[in-house]
């Protein structure tokens, strides 16, 4: 049946957990594109046949309906391919707001090389925009009650240079009293957790 590969691709997005990227299925993607070219070739072939027989292809005979089905399948495959890329791109754009401008390793290996390029260019654009309007749009929207927070380190990171020009030794399970702005990045990457109460 036509279009079965394409729907697999879309289902992959739908079945994944919400907002979670899955590995790029390049094989399936290629299969769908191959199917598209097959439809195109079939169309060309029967068009040529009709031209040789001297039939106007507007005539509503059985070949005409064959065209129609190939044409519809092409459009369908295109829609599925576009949707696959589109929803992955959307997840990538959201990623910048959540984890910052560097892609964590476990996500990077799931991406296609065009997607990596896209991520890089998008974050560049965002950064240049923010420097132009002189606003850090990626800060927390809610004003903090206290500029400092207490955190516990979950991942051993060793000596780290903080944006506020201090260095700190983030050994695993150690607790620190940090500037909120310094800690934000590590918390969203899952390397620290905020301590409350």
């Amino acid at each position: 049946m036509y279009g079965t590969n394409a729907i697999q691709l879309v289902k992959e997005i739908a079945n994944g957990e919400k907002g979670q990227l899955t590995a790029f299925s390049s094989n399936l993607f290629k299969d769908v594109i191959a199917e598209c070219s097959q439809h195109y070739e079939d169309l060309q072939k029967s068009l040529r046949k009709m031209q040789e027989a001297g039939i106007d292809f507007q005539t509503q005979n059985e070949d005409h309906y064959g065209f129609l089905i190939h044409h519809l399948s092409l459009l369908r495959n295109k829609r599925c391919l576009m949707t696959y890329m589109h929803s992955r791109a959307e997840m990538l754009r959201n990623l910048i707001w959540k984890v910052g401008y560097e892609i964590p390793e476990e996500i990077e290996e799931k991406l296609n090389h065009t997607e990596k390029e896209y991520f890089k260019k998008h974050s560049e654009a965002l950064r240049s925009y923010m420097s132009r309007v002189e606003l850090h749009l990626d800060m927390d929207m809610v004003p903090p009650k206290d500029p400092y927070i207490k955190v516990r380190v979950l991942d051993d990171m060793g000596e780290v240079q903080l944006p506020s020009f201090n260095t700190a030794n983030f050994a695993q399970h150690s607790m620190h009293f940090l500037k909120r702005t310094d800690a934000e990045k590590y918390i969203s990457l899952g390397k620290m957790e905020e301590l409350t109460g």
Binding site: E17, E106, D140, D155, Q172, A183, L189, E194
Partner: peptide, 20 residues
């Protein structure tokens, strides 16, 4: 009830098991 304002980004998936 309230709770921590910052959390691990949900895109990173479920929490990994501690390495030790």
């Amino acid at each position: 009830i309230g709770g921590p304002r910052f959390e691990r980004a949900s895109v990173l998936g479920r929490k990994r098991k501690s390495t030790d």
